[in-house]
């Protein structure tokens, strides 16, 4: 076969061009993937990511995202007051695409940092920060608490139920108020004992005191106690098991912690929220503004699984689900404690 030398040269040039193009494309792709690499981050609050409750719920959500997508995220657990601002800023500086600030206490720091980095997306849970690059996610805890309160009133034999709150803040009073409304909706004559564990953040992590508070309620005749108290709630659940009484868990599904003595758990789906934040930010559908998650959005709810199915009778399930529908449709209005800092029922 006779090949023209010129064509060889042409071929060579052609080859070179192809290789070059290849390299260019490769470099572009790499550069693109660099720019595209999604970098999410989360700043946990003082409770730490293993607080068995709120922070841990967030962590469960972010972990789910990591397992599904294989995308790693950066995280930090705040230990000093000044670190909130420091690490929110550091994560923004490092080019994070989305930073979740966990808990209301981070709001002042986020306010500052989010205005410094208008191109970074931030989501804050349990508080509203009004900035164009911030998404604020809040829950209608009163609705979920209403449901478990109603269930408690159906289940209670003594007509007395209890509530153990963590730190005495409006947010926890919102839980309490929804719960009492739910109880009174079923049994207007019921007594609800209400106690708060403390007035400082230490109240989130004091299971011994939680247990004592619950025990004092059981001693006074209550047979079901709802714990909205973070790690303190573990003591409440323990006290219920030790005294052959019932408890109600909070935030995540806590039915499995003391199987058979946890009547149900008031689910506050912070895990779904944090998962959704990462997911939508990754897909480009993340939006700033206020997101309110209630029963209708499945942001709150109640749990039924193999650990408590023996405790909740069929007609109770139906009645609770009916109330759920009524709240979603607006037939039942649940008062929000934080709307006027007071509760119509005690």
């Amino acid at each position: 076969m006779n090949i023209h030398p010129e064509s060889l040269i042409v071929q060579e040039i052609f080859m070179k061009k192809i290789v070059l193009a290849f390299i260019t494309v490769a470099v572009m792709c790499f550069g693109l993937s660099q720019a595209m690499a999604f970098k999410p981050a989360v700043v946990f609050d003082m409770g730490g990511k293993f607080d068995k409750s709120f922070n841990e719920g967030i962590w469960n959500g972010t972990e789910k995202f990591r397992k599904e997508t294989g995308i790693k995220y950066r995280e930090f657990e705040v230990q000093q007051e000044a670190q909130r601002e420091q690490f929110l800023r550091k994560l923004a500086q490092r080019g994070s695409d989305i930073v979740i600030a966990v808990g209301f206490a981070q709001a002042p720091a986020l306010q500052k940092v989010a205005s410094e980095f208008p191109n970074t997306k931030f989501s804050i849970i349990d508080m509203v920060v009004d900035l164009p690059n911030v998404q604020s996610i809040v829950f209608k805890e009163q609705e979920g608490s209403f449901l478990v309160g109603a269930l408690a009133a159906m289940k209670s034999e003594t007509g007395k139920v209890g509530f153990v709150g963590g730190m005495d803040i409006p947010l926890i009073r919102r839980f309490a108020c929804g719960y009492v409304q739910g109880v009174k909706h079923i049994n207007p004559g019921a007594t609800v004992f209400q106690k708060m564990t403390g007035t400082t953040p230490a109240a989130w992590n004091d299971p011994a005191r939680g247990g004592e508070l619950a025990k004092s309620m059981y001693d006074d005749g209550a047979d079901i106690v709802y714990a909205a108290a973070g790690g303190t709630g573990l003591g409440v659940l323990q006290a219920a098991a030790d005294n052959n009484k019932l408890s109600i868990g909070v935030d995540s599904n806590q039915n499995h912690i003391q199987p058979g003595s946890v009547l149900t758990s008031m689910l506050k789906r912070v895990d779904v929220a944090s998962y959704e934040v990462f997911k939508t930010a990754n897909e480009g559908t993340w939006k700033s503004g206020i997101k309110v998650l209630g029963l209708a959005e499945d942001g709150v709810g109640w749990s039924l699984d193999q650990h408590n199915v023996g405790l909740v009778e069929k007609d109770m399930i139906m009645r609770v689900e009916m109330i759920r529908g009524d709240i979603i449709s607006g037939k039942i209005k649940v008062h929000d404690y934080m709307s006027n800092n007071s509760c119509p029922v005690q």
């Binding site: 230490a202 992590n205 004091d206 299971p207 011994a208 247990g211 790690g231 573990l234 003591g235 323990q238």
Partner: peptide
């Protein structure tokens, strides 16, 4: 005895 697990800073 009082509880059935350890949590950090339990002695408080």
């Amino acid at each position: 005895a009082q509880l059935a697990f350890f949590v950090k800073d339990m002695s408080a």
